[in-house]
Simulated scan of single mutants.
Amino acid sequence: MAGNWSILRLSLPPTNWEAPSFTRAAQFRVGATFVLFLFAACSNLALLVSVWRGQRLASHLRPLMLSLASADLMMTFVVMPLDAVWNMTVQWYGGDALCKLLCFLKLFAMHASAFILVVISLDRQHAILHPLDALSAHSRNRRMLLLAWTLSILLASPQLFIFRTIRVDSVDFTQCASHGSFSRRWQETVYNMFHFTTLYVVPLLVMSCCYSRILLHIHQQHLRDKAGESPLRRSGTDIIPKARMKTLKMTVVIVLSFVVCWTPYYLLGIWYWFQPDMLRITPEYVHHALFVFGNLNTCCDPIIYGFYTPSFRADLAACCRWVRSDADTSSQYIDRMSTREGPHSREHEPQPSTNNQTNNAVILSAC
């Protein structure tokens, strides 16, 4: 998967190809990516620390949320900076080894983010459909997470062989691209469609199947309770606990944010793979805006988690209080130092006026 079709591929013959430039639309993309990077880095790091230290979150759910935050951080620190810097420099200056490595890490981060959502969906399905099997949830989730990370590495590994640096001597331009790695156009299309399937179609189908089965189970349970088949028996298999239902709602919203954010970008990618001339038809800002909108998904996960998890909000509030108290302590320390140094400085220097003393104290306090 390429993040910017006009830059990452040299699909036209070098004799007819024109080097891209840092356009106004690309400048907007870089600015928006930088803002998303700052927010995603802070929020996902806070989420990672909160889940790691949290005591209210169930033990079998903690590895899932830690993996989700880790995948989002990989998207934040690999995909976003790579995309922003690449759009600014336009051509590639990192060499062949870095070209292969970063293209691999980019696809690895995107696969990991999608597959971990699949693992979370499978965990919620098992928790709702088989509530009495909670003891095996911890080991089961660890196995599924290991499989998700392993598959992400394997599926991203072809990037190490497909992408390389290519130089166009006629325009003195060097790019990291997949040009020349496929002997036929249809081979490149098949490769891209394969990753579109593994990144989007398969995760979407599995997640849709999981939540459809959950909704069907809840509906059937509601019908049984309404019909009065088991009015006296109220065990864990009959009524879904509020905490479990709250977690279910949270995971549904997280999955929906993934679908909403990435669907337009992937649909545009399909259009490009089958009709490359679409780059001349659609405005450039549309391509950039849809990729930025897809990256917005990285910022949504901590927001959704914070909305459904009071402990995360409490951790953020405690962190803000700690920062505020630390700032107040620093200010008081500066005030004490200015008070101590005042008499000593007057022994060797002419005594300033009262207004100057006041101004100096204000400056020291501000620093």
Rank of each mutant, 00 (worst) to 15 (best):
Q220H: 14
I120E: 11
G3Y: 14
R224G: 10
D301I: 14
L256Y: 08
A361F: 01
S311C: 08
R142N: 04
G3Q: 11
A32S: 12
E347C: 13
L205D: 03
S330K: 01
A227V: 06
I162E: 08
C103W: 10
A109G: 14
H126L: 12
L36W: 10
V51S: 11
D83M: 14
L105N: 12
T237P: 00
S50D: 09
Q275S: 09
D277Y: 05
F173L: 06
R140C: 09
R336H: 07
S136C: 10
A58H: 13
V30S: 13
T329Q: 13
S353Q: 03
N87Y: 10
Q175I: 07
Q332M: 08
S21W: 13
F173H: 10
S181W: 12
D301M: 14
L160W: 07
A317Q: 13
D335W: 00
S330F: 02
I334D: 08
S257H: 09
F194K: 02
S353G: 04
S67V: 05
M75D: 11
E347S: 14
C320I: 14
P14G: 02
N360H: 05
R24L: 12
M144K: 12
H348A: 06
P264I: 05
E229F: 15
S212N: 03
F34G: 04
S70R: 03
H179F: 13
R24N: 09
D328Y: 04
W273G: 00
F108S: 07
L223I: 07
D123H: 07
L8T: 05
P352T: 04
I304Q: 01
V292W: 12
V78R: 08
P63Q: 00
M110R: 05
I281V: 15
M207L: 05
H222M: 09
S212V: 04
K249V: 04
H217L: 04
V49W: 12
V255P: 02
R185F: 07
I162M: 09
N192W: 13
L122V: 09
A361W: 01
I254H: 11
I214K: 13
S325H: 07
A314K: 03
M75T: 04
N360T: 05
V206D: 03
L48E: 06
W5E: 07
G342D: 07
E341P: 03
I166D: 10
L199R: 08
R346Y: 02
W322A: 15
D96P: 01
I240Y: 01
R140K: 08
L102T: 12
H111I: 00
L232H: 15
